[in-house]
Simulated assay, not measured.
Amino acid sequence: MEYRDGAPAEHFQTRTVSREKVVAAVFGWVKGEPGRKDPFMWNNIVSCFEGCDGS
């Protein structure tokens, strides 16, 4: 699961095997719940895209 918090440098990813946690996080996002990201460990993935020339 990924989310971007405004700027491209604020692009985060997490992984889980729990479908229920993903559904709860998405519904929390839709409802605007502030703690929806807390159950996960998020990694900034902007470094995966740095230097990419698009080819």
Rank of each mutant, 00 (worst) to 15 (best):
E10M: 08
V23N: 12
T14P: 07
F12W: 03
K21M: 05
D5Y: 02
T16D: 11
D38R: 04
E10V: 04
F40S: 10
H11N: 07
E20Q: 11
N43F: 06
P34E: 05
V23F: 08
P39K: 08
G28M: 03
K21L: 15
D5L: 07
P8E: 14
V17N: 07
C48G: 10
V30D: 01
F27C: 11
E33A: 10
T14C: 15
I45N: 03
Q13R: 15
T16P: 05
V23E: 01
R19Y: 06
C48V: 12
R36K: 05
V22K: 05
M1G: 06
E33S: 11
E10C: 13
D53S: 13
R4V: 04
P34Y: 01
C48T: 07
G51W: 11
M41Q: 09
V22L: 04
S47E: 15
V46G: 12
C52A: 14
A24R: 01
A9K: 12
V22T: 00
F12Q: 00
P39I: 04
C48M: 15
M41I: 14
G32Y: 09
K37F: 15
G54C: 12
R36N: 05
S55N: 13
P8S: 15
D38H: 08
D38S: 09
S47K: 11
V26T: 14
Q13N: 13
S18F: 00
K37R: 13
W42C: 03
A25Q: 00
P34G: 11
P34L: 08
E50P: 08
E50Q: 10
R15T: 13
R19F: 12
Y3V: 02
G51V: 12
F12M: 08
Q13H: 11
R15D: 13
R4Y: 01
A24E: 01
C52S: 14
M1C: 02
R15P: 04
G32R: 05
K37G: 09
F49W: 14
R4T: 00
I45P: 05
P34N: 04
P8C: 14
R19Q: 12
V17G: 09
F12K: 00
W42Y: 07
N43A: 10
V26Y: 14
V46F: 09
T16E: 08
R19A: 12
I45D: 09
S18H: 06
V23G: 12
A25R: 05
R4F: 08
E33V: 09
M41E: 11
W29F: 00
A25M: 02
A7C: 14
P8Q: 13
E33L: 15
C52V: 14
W29S: 15
A25G: 07
P39Y: 04
N43E: 06
R36A: 11
Y3E: 01
E20Y: 14
M41L: 10
W42H: 02
G32L: 10
D38M: 07
E50H: 14
V23A: 12
G6I: 06
W29M: 02
W42A: 06
W42L: 06
G35R: 01
G51T: 01
E20A: 15
V23R: 03
G28K: 03
V23S: 12
T14A: 15
E10P: 10
V30S: 02
R4I: 07
E2N: 03
D5P: 00
S47Q: 08
K31Y: 13
